[in-house]
Amino acid sequence: MLNKVLCVDDDPVTLMICDIMLEKANFCQRVEQAAGGTSALKYLKNQIEQTDGQLPDAILLDINMPVMNGWEFLEEYVEKYQAHMPDCKIIILTSSVNPEDKELAEKHPDVTDFMPKPITLDGLEALKTIPALRKYFARYIA
């Protein structure tokens, strides 16, 4: 399983659900939460600056958020932080029905996958099988 996943969503209920679902699915050891793009960037900055800081293996990113949306976060992330965490996977998790969002996600070179909400255990199981994440889950290695 993954070591650390950062969930970025402005909705605290969603963050809570993610937390439980990721744990139930044995997806990762630890879940960190950020209530928006700016909080997430701040968290990453802290981790980099701390001597024992631990950066996430994956970020579950919502698109529609106030102050800084998912795309804006991604822009700054790529610019400032990606170099520190080149192996980190970006997974868009959104209830957006705007087809442009899905299209953008598919085209974006730094987005690993696109998951429509609601987040389900089946959805997470499927996510484990994508090539970029497969190696983290022992039973798929063989």
Binding site: D11, V13, T14, I17, I20, M21, K24, N64, S95, S96, V97, N98, K117, P118, I119, T120, L121
Partner: peptide
């Protein structure tokens, strides 16, 4: 789009909670 998104967001939560 915004309305449907704002409606969909809590529904997706409800669906996840139902699953849990």
């Amino acid at each position: 789009f915004i309305t449907s998104h704002n409606l969909r967001a809590p529904i997706t939560n409800l669906l996840s909670i139902l699953e849990l």
